[in-house]
Structure formats: structure tokens, C-alpha cells
Design a protein around this nucleic acid. Structure first.
Lengths: 366, 366
DNA sequence: GTGAAAGCGCTAACAA
DNA sequence: TTGTTAGCGCTTTCAC
């Protein structure tokens, strides 16, 4: 039914009056809760249609304390990886009757905190977040205080008891490294735009099973796992200083600059592992502009099976991430919690898949 | 201040009590409206901090009728083009202190209607939407009835008086076509996954200035404009049946199939215009798999300057869309409306930019 | 099965 | 400048 813009929207009270019943009865009929007789229900529904009634979800949230909305915070929507994860979460949410409020953290801890505050203020029923920092527990404390659940995805928050779903980054990175080692590479670079710089060598810790990790932890648990897997594979192959060519926080200097630097000098790297598809594409361009051929002069592999990696020349060998599943699983775990399922905090680890293309070749002699 | 999860959240009333003032005064101090003395403000703020008070936006929306939230509905977040537009809108919204609720329409009219209903029920202050159909006015009527503003982006809704921002598609398509014509192409295909099939030839209308349009209109105004610009350029160059190789709704048959079909037979096309980067990448792969070289056998151009188009071999010549600006401008227009600016509905048209790469060559003889 | 009334947490009109 | 009071539209006891 057409209603003039500006006229006050119909409320349950209006519908109740039109149907000749009480507000409570009308609300019950409209909200599909409580018990209403068939006849009354129909009468109310009819009146609602006539008046063009649409439920005010704000008022409903107000009285129930629940909003049927989940908040999602990603590093950057524009990054296709996050876009896919968002899609995965959105589909699950939609299926379960939840809406999604989306925010960008820009991978900045303070923006993330603000985003969390805002979403909490909106009384989202729970949050799905790709933590901007794996070591800033303080950002997530307000969520717990609010009594609402949270599910992390893509990265963990060290020492924070919560549901999370991540990819098998350590294993994936190790497989990528072994692939390169198998082609005779020894000087292999690892480049990421995330996580802080610093004296990685001094922070490395070898566990009793020979596993490698860092203390204190890196900013992003995903990068930490990748670097650890990468380093462990190199070390297992006898490379003495596996961290020598690791470059984190690459945005500061610029990926192109770093690539140039790494591929020059007396002992240039012969292979590069790019920590995501954005690093990969920039590295790929930088190599090209330096007149270096892939894989002739330098082999290049990356994470994320971005669409361009299939059509570039050569195609890029990548460790594909279960992006949609990451988002979908996080949303699913969160919704379970919202619906009251009780179980200890769980971390799910999803496998990665190696997609071999043509960007890896034998190490050039040098 | 740490609060045990589960304990009731502090409200203005609690803060007021703790600060020894009335609820109204506390609310004024907290909400930064009305007049409060400096001393009282500080006392209230202090009490709020102690109690870990965080404002309940739902309650605020309830009483103000405004939610500081704008709804955005896109065809598919996973499509990088929408992801960029979303980013543009999100940044503007954020800057202006608004949040964004995001929904996918999946380019389906009924899903879109549901999404609009839900967002309206959430009492968003306004909507930014990429209409799933340029001719289904009914979907947007509820927005007007609700008294809330809407801004369309990327596509228009014919006959619907509202703010909108689109790209100069007609011009862009014509430029792309002229580029190909200049290389001697005459049999040029245009492929899109959107808009319905049907007897395009019979629907074409030539205006008195010689301009081309369709009656009834196509499902997507963007595609309509692109086809019209494309056809007009071909016709101006003396191509008798400019619509002969136009293929819409390509998802049904599959892009690969269509490409194979178009490039075979006695009079194969020598060039393809892909209506977006997803069509382009699939067409590119199909050509490759058919053993056809680009641009040797077939030239390929597209819309959207997707990242892969710069690293594929050859690089793809594209008409770049002002995606971020499309989203940002729509959000800006919407927020102006929300803030009460009065002006007639406006349609902004943003220019497209030709990025020439290596996917266009002389028409192969045949 | 239905109704009356209270209340969610905030803002806003009015009074002091 | 501050306080009192009355809602916003819905859900939810508690009676009947």
C-alpha cells in the first residue's frame, strides 16, 4: 500500500487499532511468537498490509536486547581476499537471518578499536574480526565485557580465549619453501607488508621439537606462521640464516624498492615468496621493470589464488587460501555462540592448496 | 574499566546516580548536546569511565529516529568493482560519522527487495544502491514511502526521481568501439552477463539526433548505455547491423561457449568488447584455450581496470571506471540529503579513462 | 487466547 | 545550567 512520504509510519498500535485488538495481540500476530488464534492472526495481518506496516527493528532490538546483526571488521574490503571472506560470512549470515555491518580497520589498531566500539554501541549480537594485531588483546576486551561473542578469522590473537578460524599457514609456507628448495634455490626472500620490522634473528626461538617461533610474537599471527614455516623449511634444508632475506612491513620502503635491493648485489636472491597477492603483483611488476625474467632469473610464488595469477605470463604458482570458507566458518561459529551453544573456545585450521603454475624454475647460477 | 561479562551494562541512569546528577544532565554531558557546566561535565565523564559506560546506539536511534547508519546494496561484494565502490562509500561514510550496513543483491530483483526491506526495518538513514534492475521501480518505492533518501550508483532507474551517479558509459563504449574500428575491425562482439536477451534489433530506436536507444529499456542502464554507444559508433562507421554480435545475459550459455561460437564459422568476429572485468578474464581464457592469439587473431578490450589486465600477456586495453568515486559520490550525495540539503534530484556523470595496452591489433583478414 | 501495563535506554520539551 | 517528565515502538510478564 502506498503511503505518502512524510506521513508517520504505521506502528503495532495502529495495526492493533485497525484490527480491533490489543497492542499485545497484534504484536504477537505480527512477530510470530506467543499464541494467537488463526482468525485474529489473519485479521491483524490484513490490517498490517492495508496500513503498509513494517516492523521497526530498532524498537525490537531495544526491547529484546538483540539486533539480529553481526559486525564484521576486516583489514581492507578492497583487498579481494577480504572481499571473498566477507562474501562467505555474508552468505552464512543471510542464511541464518542475520545482517552484516561491515567496517574497515585499515589494519590499524586504533581504527579497529574505534570500529569495535561503534559496533558494540550498535548492539551487534557478535563480531567477526580479522585482528589488526595478534598481540593487542586490549582491543578485544570490550567485546568480552559486553557479554557478546567474537570469532576471529585469518589471524589469531595470542593468549585470547576465543573462537577462531585460520588457514594452515605454517604448513603452506613450508610447502612453498620446499618447492623452491627442490628447484635448487637457497637464497629465498619472503616479503610481507604486515607485521613490524625488527631484529627477527634475535627473536627466533627453537622449540624442543625443533620448531621455530618468535618471542615476542609478530604483529600478525598469519605472517608469523608463514615466516616460521618458511624458516623451518629452509633450516631443515641446511640454510644457515633462513631469516636473512625476510622483509616485513614492506610498505614503508616500498615493495619495488625491496625487490630491487634483494635482486642486486653480489648474492641476490633467486626466488621470492610473496605473502599475499598484492605483494605478489607488485613484486611481479618490479621484477619485470628491472628486466628480470620470471622464472628465468627469479622464481616467484605467493599466497592467495588471485585471478590475475592465472592469466599473467607466466602464471604464478600460489598457495591458495580458503578465503570464503574462512569467512563462512567464522560466521558460523559466531552464530552458534549467539544462539547459545556452549563449548570451549575452538581454533579451526583450514588447509591450503598448492596451485602450481609456471613461475618457478631452477635457481639461476650465481 | 573491566566489567564482568554478564553484569548489566551501565546506563545513563547509572552514570547519573554515580555522578549525583539527573539523568538528563548526564545524558547531555555524555551526548555533547544541550548545555552543561564544565565541572558537571567532568564529573559525569569520570563516573562514566569508572562504570565503563558505553552509549547504547539502539536506544539513541529509538528516540531520535535516526541511526547514523547508511545502507548499501551492491550486486556482489566479491566483484572487485563493487569492492572498490564500497570502499569509496565506506570512507566517506566514516568521515561523516556514519556506519555502513552492506548487503548483496546477487543482481536479483527479489533479493534486492528483501535487502531493502531489511535495511529499512533497521531504520537506516538512507540507502546507496546499485539497482539490480533499471526498470523495476517497485523495489524502490518503499524507500520513498519511508521518507528516507536514496542515491543510486553505477546504474540509473528509469523514470525514478532520485540522486544518482554513473560513469559515462555511452561515451566510453563508443571510444572503445572507435578504437577497434580504427584498427580495421568491422565484426565486433559485445558481451555482458547482465540484462536480458531478446530481440535487440527490433527494440532499437533512433532518435532525431541520430542517437541510439532501446525501447523498452534494458535491465541495466549501464549495459544499455554501453550497447548504445557501441552500436552508435559502429553505425556511424557504416556497419550495417551493429547489434549482430551483441550477446547479453551471457552467464546462461557461458562466456566460453559464446566466445567459441563468435570466433568460429564463416564470418567470425575479429574483436571483442567485454562489458566488465569478469567477462574479460573469462573471454581471455576462452580465447587462449581455443588457441586464438590476442591480439593476433582477436583483439580484446574491456571495461574496468582490474589489476590482472596490467599483468596478463598481452596487457588488456580497458576503459577504466571511476569505481571508488562512484561509491564515494553516491555516499556524499546521500549524506547531504540526510543532513537536510534541499535540491532537485541530480544525476552526476563521471568520466571514464582509456588505458591502452597491448590487446588491440589490426583486424585479421577473413 | 487475549489484554493491561511495565520497561528497554535514550532524547527532548518544558519547567524551574 | 539543571531537573522532571513523557515518550519512541516494541516485547514481555502477569492477569483474566
Amino acid at each position: 500500500m502506498m503511503r505518502e512520504p512524510g506521513r508517520r509510519a504505521a506502528t503495532v498500535a495502529d495495526v492493533a487499532a485497525a484490527a480491533g485488538v490489543s497492542k499485545a495481540t497484534a504484536a504477537r500476530a505480527l512477530g510470530a511468537y506467543g499464541a494467537v488464534s488463526e482468525r485474529v492472526r489473519e485479521r491483524v495481518r490484513g490490517a498490517a498490509d492495508d496500513l503498509g506496516y513494517r516492523r521497526n527493528e530498532v524498537a525490537r532490538s531495544m526491547s529484546t536486547g538483540r539486533s539480529r546483526t553481526i559486525g564484521m571488521i576486516v583489514g581492507d574490503i578492497e583487498n579481494p581476499a577480504f572481499a571473498q571472506a566477507t562474501r562467505g560470512a555474508a552468505d552464512v549470515a543471510d542464511e541464518a537471518g542475520f545482517d552484516l555491518i561491515l567496517s574497515n580497520s585499515g589494519e590499524r589498531v586504533d581504527s579497529e578499536r574505534k570500529a569495535i566500539d561503534v559496533q558494540l554501541a550498535k548492539r551487534v549480537d557478535g563480531l567477526v574480526v580479522a585482528p589488526a594485531s595478534s598481540s593487542t588483546l586490549a582491543n578485544y576486551a570490550p567485546i568480552i565485557e559486553s557479554g557478546r561473542p567474537v570469532a576471529f578469522f585469518d589471524r589469531l590473537v595470542h593468549g585470547f580465549e576465543a573462537d577462531a578460524v585460520i588457514a594452515a599457514n605454517r604448513d603452506g609456507a613450508a610447502r612453498l619453501a620446499r618447492l623452491l628448495l627442490g628447484f635448487g634455490h637457497r637464497r629465498i626472500a619472503f616479503i610481507s607488508t604486515l607485521s613490524e620490522l625488527g631484529d627477527l634473528e634475535r627473536r627466533i626461538v627453537i622449540g624442543r621439537a625443533g620448531e621455530i617461533f618468535f618471542e615476542p610474537r609478530l604483529e600478525s599471527s598469519a605472517i608469523e606462521d608463514r615466516v616460521a614455516g618458511f624458516a623451518a623449511a629452509l633450516r631443515a634444508a641446511g640454510v644457515v640464516r633462513p631469516l636473512e632475506h625476510v622483509r616485513l612491513d614492506a610498505r614503508t620502503q616500498g615493495i619495488a624498492y625491496i625487490v630491487r635491493q634483494l635482486t642486486r648485489g653480489p648474492a641476490p636472491v633467486t626466488a621470492i615468496v610473496a605473502s599475499d597477492s598484492i605483494v605478489a603483483i607488485e613484486a611481479f611488476r618490479a621484477l619485470r621493470e628491472s628486466g628480470l625474467s620470471v622464472p628465468g632469473d627469479v622464481s616467484l610464488v605467493g599466497f592467495d589464488n588471485a585471478d590475475w595469477t592465472a592469466v599473467s605470463e607466466p602464471g604464478i604458482t600460489v598457495m591458495s587460501q580458503p578465503l570464503r570458507e574462512l569467512g563462512a566458518t567464522a560466521a558460523r561459529m559466531l552464530i552458534e555462540r549467539i544462539q547459545g551453544v556452549q563449548r570451549p573456545a575452538t581454533v579451526r585450521v583450514l588447509p591450503q592448496e598448492l596451485i602450481e603454475r609456471a613461475s618457478v624454475g631452477p635457481a639461476s647460477v650465481g
